Simulated assay, not measured.
Amino acid sequence: MSEIIKNLSGHGVSVWLDDISRERLRTGNLETLIREKGVVGVTSNPTIFASALSKGDAYTPQLHDLSIRGVDVEEAVRAITTYDIRWAADVLRPVYDATGGVDGRVSLEVDPRLARETDKTIAEARALWWMVDRPNLMIKIPATVEGLAAITQALAEGISVNVTLIFSLERYRAVMDAWLAGLEQAKAAGLDLSSIESVASFFVSRVDTEIDKRLDKIGSPEAAALKGKAAVANAQLAYAAFEEVMNSPRWQALRDAGARPQRPLWASTGTKDPSYPDTLYVDELVAPGTVNTMPEKTLDAVADHGKITGDTVRGSYERAWNSMAALKEIGIDYDDVVRALEEEGVEKFEASWNELLATVTAELRKA
């Protein structure tokens, strides 16, 4: 295994792969990444599945059977995606067992078209949890306002949750409140809190993409000097908020009852701007008790030349606040940025889901 990845893991960062495909599973590539690149978890999203279905013939036999059975397209998509997730969960089961259920996790997202519908999101989360039927599954629920109650309800029923599409500090605090409420309800119902795992996926690179675009429009030297600073600062301040909750009496009571922290997960960690170091959002976000889910390109870059120098988060809060203050002073509206990013994130995943439906529809007709 890469010594750099060992070093990263040694500083408390769990390395997850932000990708899944039937081809990756049937060739044994996932096992190789676990063994050689220190991967201890997998995340998926509608875009990843849409891409996987559009390449190769790995899904052809299942699509043929689904076509013969006359399964409608939405159930076909559930059958295809849950098949891959079960397989990945089984591959990662030894990691799950070795880490006491902390890692070895595989995430599957609810239909993103339900992001603004609480009851339907809850119903879909229950259905996917039942269909996959693996203890190391996590159901991904977006951190929209409507998603917060769904997060609480899923956790209250013992469903492990990966909260996705978090961009703002305010929304992240609301997510942690929803998580605590879910655990409190699970405790009241007599559930085993130690079996309920959660991560909060705080998106990183998209923040720089949006803010850098706005800084370019401002066009001043002061604006140029602030490019590439917002995303890391935003994530570092999210960790500060996480630490506040970890020191709260509310959390201490749940911890004493066997609950485990909702770890911050750094998502969207591949750099979009080629002028930035390709390991930027890994090197600058090293902190204990976190997850970094990376596309394979970023994982390979980190294993090859990542610069892991220890904790780069907990000593950075003042600098991060200063960066955010400077952005505000120059005219960047943070609230507008994160609102736009959430809307764009939901729209992108809806588009990918519709692409996935169209691809499966076409394949079912061919089969």
Rank of each mutant, 00 (worst) to 15 (best):
E23R: 02
V39Q: 14
K6L: 00
E197P: 01
A127R: 03
T81R: 02
V232H: 10
D208V: 05
T271G: 13
W130N: 15
A367H: 15
V95K: 11
A200K: 00
L357P: 00
S201K: 02
A143R: 11
V232A: 02
T293D: 14
I159N: 07
W129V: 10
V71M: 07
W266E: 11
Y59H: 09
L66R: 06
L92G: 10
D212M: 09
Q153E: 15
T209H: 14
K348V: 12
R113A: 00
A231Y: 01
V302A: 09
E124R: 11
L299K: 01
G70N: 12
E347S: 15
N247D: 15
M294S: 11
I139N: 06
V207C: 00
R116I: 02
V91M: 12
L193W: 03
G190H: 01
V163A: 06
E318L: 14
S205N: 05
T164R: 06
A127L: 11
A259C: 04
D283I: 02
V73S: 01
V245G: 13
G306R: 01
E75N: 10
K297I: 03
L128M: 09
K366D: 10
T293N: 12
V71S: 05
A358T: 11
L191R: 14
E75F: 13
D208H: 08
A52L: 02
T164N: 09
I166T: 10
E243K: 09
K55T: 03
F49G: 04
V71E: 02
D216H: 09
E157G: 14
N354I: 07
V232I: 04
L128Y: 04
V161I: 15
R134Q: 13
P264E: 00
I218M: 01
G41M: 08
N136Y: 09
V282R: 07
L183Y: 01
T152V: 04
G158S: 07
T99I: 08
V77H: 05
I308V: 14
E36D: 15
A149G: 08
G182H: 02
R263K: 03
R314S: 15
D57E: 10
A143K: 06
D300N: 12
D256H: 08
N354P: 13
E23C: 09
V40A: 14
V145G: 09
T47M: 08
R113Y: 05
I122L: 08
G228W: 06
D18P: 02
I139H: 04
G258R: 05
L280T: 03
T298V: 07
A58W: 09
S9L: 07
D335F: 00
I141F: 05
L114T: 13
S14T: 13
A267H: 00
F349E: 13
Q236V: 01
P61M: 03
V313Y: 01
T279R: 03
V207K: 05
I151Q: 05
Y59Q: 04
